[in-house]
Nucleic acid binder design. Structure first.
Length: 373
RNA sequence: GGUAGGAUGGCCGAGUGGUCAAAGGCAACAGACUGUAAAUCUGUCGGCGAGAGCCUACGCUGGUUCAAAUCCAGCUCCUACCA
């Protein structure tokens, strides 16, 4: 029911192309996965996601547990049916909320006590609870409940969190029973190379069909992120998918792929899209800027998305300044298309044996500096 | 014509003698956003200056006072009610 097939590998970099077989379809990797925390990719409908080329999307354990509740989703026939997305879904375990809701939670070896961000009520989530919820949601890929550590942190704290994450991973696997759902372990260890290597080895001993790399893109420099990937990826099993959690930035995707990452997810395309930020092949733009008021060209002339085929920067800027919801939709659409297709193009390049050139071409064009108006 | 109330920074609107270049909101301009507490958040927002600071400002004109957006007089305009 779940299998990873490595189909091509870049002889120069660590880039890999593969296929992930899931109950709801085959995913071609490397892949960018749009984030749909609350059973919706914000501002997008499922048919629109299909048109973009999205192969798999995310849902979130913590958020769906809080609202509407796992039982309701289960009663609805599972998350796929509930939200009318009939392709693969990956659910995050709530581990990231251990990080992002740091003001509202208390961690013990047993689990995490959360105060609801909605009404302040107390909830206790153990690895077993996360598994129960994810099994009710019925995602194709569930993630182990981990502790995503804040950055920066000490070597001691990172180790404690890593130990907890490993012990929770074991409990997750023991508790997990649904056969039509794969369970991925998550590597922690912050910016400590030895801990990262130790963590993947010990997770491998437990045995998972895929591995997430957590605790990155939490504020550290790109150099730190790449340094960890450089030492960690060669230690990861070749025949299992590698998922760099929460990443994100186009440059990070290109570099992640070069280091052997197969899967990415990030809120950046949708969140920034709602706020006027768009990604292009030549860098980022903020469409709210006055300079676009009379710019009657598409966001990215080389982009084939619905937004770029039909609308101008001036029109979209107008929608933003007028507070129109379509602005958020059109830019989310474009940004998702950009990242999904960046990975599709990367895959093609890997298969055709030209990933190093593809990578060079990307950076020659993509400008991180101030935008040109 | 009479009576009452009111005129504040692009707009709305606090402020009734000094701590006022003037709260707050909106608009505008810019920035941030990486397993989504985000259609959010932050900053700037009279002029000059790196800065201390200086200048110009609360309808207009004049006055009182060490000191006026705030008090007084006249004027202009607006609003409500009465004729």
């Amino acid at each position: 029911m779940f299998e990873y097939r490595l189909t091509a590998q870049c002889p120069e970099t660590g880039a890999r192309a593969g296929e992930l077989i899931t109950p709801h379809g085959v995913i071609e990797t490397p892949v960018f996965m749009p984030v749909g925390t609350q059973a919706t990719v914000k501002a997008m409908t499922p048919p629109e996601l299909e048109e973009i080329g999205a192969q798999i999307i995310l849902g979130n354990t913590y958020h769906l547990y809080m609202r509407p509740g796992a039982d309701i989703v289960e009663e609805a026939g599972g998350l796929h049916k509930f939200m009318q997305w009939h392709h693969p879904i990956l659910t995050d375990s709530g581990g990231f909320q251990v990080f992002s809701l740091s003001e509202l939670r208390k961690i013990t070896d047993e689990g995490v006590e959360f105060r609801s961000h909605l009404d302040g009520s107390k909830h206790f989530m153990r690895p077993e609870d996360s598994m129960d919820i994810q099994q009710k949601l019925g995602s194709d890929i569930a993630m182990a409940f981990d502790e995503c550590v804040v950055w920066p942190t000490t070597e001691e704290y990172s180790r404690a969190a890593m130990e907890r994450t490993i012990s929770w991973a074991k409990r997750c696997k023991e508790h997990h029973s649904r056969e039509d759902q794969a369970l991925f372990g998550i590597v922690q260890g912050s910016m400590f190379e030895a801990q990262r290597i130790e963590c993947i080895k010990r997770l491998e001993d437990i045995g998972f069909p895929g591995y997430g790399i957590g605790g990155l893109s939490v504020g550290e420099s790109h150099e730190d992120m790449y340094r960890i990937l450089d030492v960690l990826c060669p230690e990861m099993p070749v025949n299992k998918p590698r998922y760099l959690m929460g990443v994100g930035h186009p440059a990070n995707l290109i570099e992640g792929v070069a280091r052997g990452i197969d899967m990415f997810d990030c809120v950046l395309p949708t969140r920034n899209g709602r706020n006027g930020g768009v990604l292009t092949s030549f860098g980022k733009l903020n469409l709210k800027n006055r300079g676009f008021a009379r710019d009657f060209t598409p966001i990215d002339p080389s982009c084939g998305c619905y937004t770029c085929r039909n609308f101008t920067r001036a029109y979209i800027r107008h929608l933003y300044t007028a507070g129109e919801i379509l602005a958020a939709r059109l830019c989310s659409w474009h940004n998702l298309y950009f990242l999904v297709n960046l990975m599709r193009d990367a895959r093609k390049a890997i298969i055709e044996g030209r990933y190093p050139q593809f990578r060079r071409d990307f950076f020659a064009k993509f400008n991180e500096g101030p935008m040109q108006l």
